[in-house]
Each structure stands twice: as structure tokens, then as C-alpha cells.
């Protein structure tokens, strides 16, 4: 068996000469291995791509995408002239901007502080474990947790009312510009601070000792040494987050703030488009908005990648 196998490559090589390289046995086998993924991606990602024609039609469900009337850029025009456009675009970008900034600041701060207490293994284990809990639950459950805090019977609401303040969080749209970033931090900071912490652990600790001997305070070590170490990761994360600034975390907005009273501040592109699917909006216009979102996202990713390579040739987003 072994002897036979050892001769095989030569034999194949001879036979191969006439066949193109991609017809080789190895390559065919590898193609078969990648095929399931290629098919799945084709069906679920590439087929919907031609569905962008919906955005240029006056779509009629009974006629289907091929027979509906072609209207050109009318849907886009209609959307951008409507009051919805300003609201959902500004909501999406403002909310994402708040998420990016607050999330970044908090997770970097947590990572730096975590590094300070690395040697306290037991406390570290506790912090890490507990900080991961929110990451492990879905927005569905998170919405329930939020309600236990600020819902009608929630702890904060009932404490406030005992103090004589009647405040309904689910009736006041403005306060959600604060609530949602807190929720975002709550859910993701434990996860993202581990990434920064991982970078810090990978740095040379003797540098910090040397700085200490030279009289640097703990705070100076953080700002002058550790933050510069984190900068590549910060740049990378910021760029990839900014390139997704038109993409809202649908689950968060849909489950946490799903009330008509809050739409003023919490209606974002994704929830707007979803309402179109649910039949509460115009399907073609939803498709147009979706296409706009994809197209802008595409441009932003390409630009972000160019920028990050400019910053450091080794740091591409892809």
C-alpha cells in the first residue's frame, strides 16, 4: 500500500501534463470540499443581489419581481423627499456614533484597569466571568431584563415613584439616546475589553517596570505606553465600526425599543426596512433604502480598508 502510494505522484504527474492544472485530482477534490459553502453563499447571498432590481420597481407581490413596473430612481427620490429619511438616517448615524465612542472608551478603560489587577487571579476570574454574562444572552432576554429595571413595575421606576417622581421611560423618546448606549456597553463591553486586554497582556511588561523606575506614575504608564500599544487595535476597530455606521443592530432596536412612542429617536434604517416586510410599509421603498445602505456600506468599507492600510500596511480590515 505504502509502496504503491509512493509511486503515485510521479504517475499522476505524467498523466497530468496534458490536463490543465485545475483538472488535477487534488484540485478537483479541493473544489468538492469548498462546494457546499459556495452553493450556500450563492443561494443566500448572491441570488438576493439581483433582487436589488426591486428597488427600481413599483413592486407588486402578485406580479413578482420580473413583471412589476420599472420606475427607475423614483423610490429613492420618494424616500429622500419624505420626512422618514431625515429621521431614520440621523437616528442610525447618531446612535451608532454614540455606541462607537462610548463603547470604545469604556472597553479600553476596563482593559487598562484589568491589566492593573492581572495578578489577583481570583478577582480577575470573577470579573471576566460576570462581565461576559450579558454577551451570552439574546436581545430578547435583554429586553426583559431592561423591563425589570425601567418597565412599569421595574425597580428604578418603582423607586422613583416612591420618591414621588412619576416617570415612564417607555413614553419618553429622548431618554433612549442615553439608555441604548448604556445597554450597548452593558452587552458588549465585557467582550470587547478582553480583546484590548489580550493586546496588553502580549506587551513587554519590563517596559512598564523600567518606566516606573524612571519615576513614571501608573497613570502616565497608561497614557504614554499602554494606549500607544493599543492604538493599532483602536484604529482597526474604529474603522470597521465606522464603515458600518449605516447598519444598526436590528435586534437591539427591535426588542428594546419597539414602541410607536419611541420611534422619534429609535427608528433606524433596519427597523424601517423591517416594517416594510411586515407589510406596514412600502416594499420597494424598503428595498431602495436597503440598497442605499448596502452601497454606502460598501464604499465606506473600501475607504476604511484603504485608510487602515495607509496607517500600517499590515493592518487591512481584510
Amino acid at each position: 500500500m505504502v509502496a504503491k502510494a509512493a509511486k503515485a505522484p510521479k504517475a499522476i504527474e505524467k498523466g497530468e501534463r496534458k490536463r490543465p492544472k485545475w483538472m488535477s485530482k487534488d484540485n478537483l477534490q479541493l473544489m468538492s470540499l469548498v462546494l457546499p459553502a459556495v452553493i450556500k453563499v450563492f443561494l443566500f447571498s448572491y441570488l438576493p443581489m439581483w433582487g436589488v432590481i426591486l428597488a427600481f420597481e413599483d413592486f407588486d407581490f402578485s406580479l413578482g419581481p420580473f413583471k412589476s413596473k420599472f420606475v427607475g430612481f423614483k423610490n429613492f427620490e420618494f424616500f429622500f423627499k419624505s420626512n422618514d429619511a431625515a429621521r431614520i438616517l440621523s437616528n442610525t448615524m447618531l446612535m451608532n456614533f454614540l455606541f462607537i465612542v462610548t463603547g470604545m472608551v469604556v472597553s479600553i478603560a476596563l482593559a487598562l484597569l484589568m491589566y492593573q489587577v492581572t495578578s489577583a487571579r481570583k478577582s480577575m476570574k470573577f470579573y471576566q466571568t460576570v462581565m461576559f454574562f450579558p454577551f451570552f444572552i439574546s436581545w430578547v432576554v435583554a429586553a426583559r431584563l431592561l423591563e425589570a429595571l425601567i418597565g412599569a413595575n421595574g425597580m428604578i421606576t418603582s423607586t422613583l415613584s416612591r420618591m414621588g417622581i412619576q416617570y415612564s421611560f417607555y413614553n419618553n423618546a429622548e431618554i433612549w439616546r442615553i439608555i441604548l448606549p448604556i445597554c450597548h456597553i452593558w452587552k458588549s463591553a465585557g467582550y470587547s475589553c478582553i480583546i484590548y486586554y489580550g493586546v496588553l497582556v502580549g506587551t513587554d511588561a519590563t517596559l512598564y517596570d523600567a518606566a516606573k523606575i524612571d519615576g513614571a506614575s501608573g497613570f502616565q504608564i497608561m497614557t504614554r505606553l499602554q494606549i500607544p500599544f493599543l492604538t493599532p487595535m483602536i484604529v482597526l476597530n474604529t474603522l470597521s465600526a465606522v464603515s458600518g455606521i449605516l447598519r444598526a443592530d436590528f435586534g437591539m432596536f427591535y426588542f428594546l425599543a419597539n414602541s410607536p412612542l419611541l420611534l422619534k429617536t429609535t427608528d433606524v434604517i433596519d427597523t424601517y426596512v423591517f416594517r416594510a416586510i411586515q407589510g406596514m410599509g412600502n416594499l420597494s421603498m424598503g428595498a431602495a433604502v436597503g440598497l442605499f445602505q448596502s452601497a454606502v456600506g460598501f464604499v465606506l468599507i473600501v475607504v476604511a480598508n484603504k485608510l487602515s492600510r495607509l496607517y500600517d500596511p499590515n493592518y487591512g480590515l481584510y
Binding site: V38, S45, V52, S294, I301
Partner: peptide, 19 residues
């Protein structure tokens, strides 16, 4: 081929229609 789908998609409504 895989990478491209990470950058660009048809949007949720065409996806819903296809599915």
C-alpha cells in the same frame, strides 16, 4: 467570492423574497 458578500449584500428585502 466569499469576501465580497461581507462587503455588499442585496439588502434584507430581496433576501426575504428569495428565501
Amino acid at each position: 467570492y466569499f469576501y465580497f458578500t461581507m462587503m455588499f449584500g442585496g439588502g434584507i428585502i430581496p433576501y426575504y423574497m428569495v428565501c
